[in-house]
Design a binder for these strands. Sequence first.
DNA 1: ATAGAGATTGCCT
DNA 2: GGCAATCTCTATA
Length: 177
Amino acid sequence: MAPELLNKVLVHGRRAGRIVEVEAYRGEHDPASHAFRGRTERNATMFGPPGRLYVYFTYGMHWCANAVCDEPGVAGAVLLRALAPLRGAEAMRRARPAARRDTDLCSGPAKLCQALGIDRDQDGADLVNGRGGVSIVDDGMAPPSNPVVGTRVGISVATEVDWRFSVPGDPNRSRPW
DNA sequence: ATAGAGATTGCCT
DNA sequence: GGCAATCTCTATA
């Protein structure tokens, strides 16, 4: 699912961006996943139906968003790590005054949430029918045929699996590859 | 009850 | 390149 989400469009209100970097998290069988030790109040959305948005708070100050990708009762999600701004760049700049260039607006999992105005209120939003305000749409651009593949970042366990995917060469990606 | 680390970012040197 | 911000959860006592 993770590489299939590349080049899809994340939409919240008038703001939208093309997904250019993701990471896969495999729930209860993945030591790096929030769901590894089972269901909690925080990660409950990951155990719900697929096609929903799992939003979590981390490091005491940041929100990050995932697309839930496994059947009800089975945790599994794709972390959205970077977007190429498509619409509403003005609003994104207002939401992220620290961004010096437009490539700083959505070039990280917490940056894109700040830019699009995603927080706890959007946790559980239905990405398919837009209920909850956030959706992921297919505007006809296919996923890259040769996505860049690498190890996940910011974790201390299960660092060996290549579950990070990005659109080759996109300047909005969160880090150098 | 309390300590420690975390799917990060921005500001500092 | 180092470090603070300070919520949520886990481990330990």
